[in-house]
Design a protein around this nucleic acid. Sequence first.
DNA 1: TTAAGAATGTGATGTACATCACGTAACCAC
DNA 2: GTGGTTACGTGATGTACATCACATTCTTAA
Lengths: 194, 194
Amino acid sequence: MEVDAKEILKLHIAKTAMLTDEQFDYFFSHFNSQSYKKGQVVISEGAKVDCEYFVISGCLKAFFINDEIKMYILQFAMPTWWTSDYCALYNQKKATINVDCITDATVLCLSNNDREKICSELHQVEHFFRWRTNRGYIAAQKRLLSFMNNDTRARYEELLALYPQLYNLVPKHLIAAYLGVSRETLSRLYNSHK
Amino acid sequence: MEVDAKEILKLHIAKTAMLTDEQFDYFFSHFNSQSYKKGQVVISEGAKVDCEYFVISGCLKAFFINDEIKMYILQFAMPTWWTSDYCALYNQKKATINVDCITDATVLCLSNNDREKICSELHQVEHFFRWRTNRGYIAAQKRLLSFMNNDTRARYEELLALYPQLYNLVPKHLIAAYLGVSRETLSRLYNSHK
DNA sequence: TTAAGAATGTGATGTACATCACGTAACCAC
DNA sequence: GTGGTTACGTGATGTACATCACATTCTTAA
């Protein structure tokens, strides 16, 4: 399992950065493996945020709760995805969002300090994180556009096209929370024909 | 003017990265200064995207046109902001969004190739761009949350709190296009008391 | 100076959604 | 198995918004 996780991260990094085996081993030595049960909380609003998380297996969600009532999902985190409360992490603030596990999950944790340390020690690691964040930025911008431009049905179909696994993996009210509509509306949507 | 621009960029970079004067001069040598008139197009959909733009003066907008009808504004770019079609730029694709000038403007252009070149040559430059993108990512995520969570009035007030200059600088239908509502709705919104 | 085009206001009407309310079915714990 | 919680469907009603239509100013160019 440990070995698997290391291999998964290695392949993931190799797509963007060139690291020698020794460099990668050094890089990897800063990660801690962690296992969670379905429903377990990883980051909770108001708490201190120390780490970001690289998902090895399972599925997490990053979400915001408004007025203690409505939940909005910022991101589903599947294997090889990164997640955290980046706003809190990078600015050393208390968490404003929550992260928990939709299924049992294993992740690799990297602390903020260690990330900054290895980024300054290894230029290629800094390069990797620049590109990773870049892709995240582009994805967030696309989702923003989709929000403004498309109606709920189109966004629903877009989501399932992007993550076909999601339909069977997560309960529908979470999909609704990602799309930003009520579960009732989503239910009516895919039960009406077409 | 040239001197001003250089100084503005230098101060901007210094907030995130430590560059010696020679390093900064070298960095700066990759930028081209460019002036535009109000209404001039910087990037148009379907065209090749070569550069990103650092705004020295004036105000630009990055926007998407849907079905040749409705416009959605992704970003207003004010002095010391960066803008481009990053999706197209980083993936070497044709532009899917447009960028043009709301007012007369001067910018510093940096080509994709040159950015990658100086990023690999100067670790501190890579560091700068990682942080810049990071801030963009966090801002995009916040805006996404605001879209899901807040109604139009709250988003309108949020926008004006963030950019007080905007109210007098840009026509209201552009503010509506940023908020993702019709200009009629926005008009009714701030003309109804409260 | 004038004419044309933008930007803005405002009414009337339609609609996609939220919300509330209630019901049923599936899952889990003891 | 039984009771409790979670997931999910579906009707009725309300509302924030889009859309269309038209009037009014403000801007700009010839």
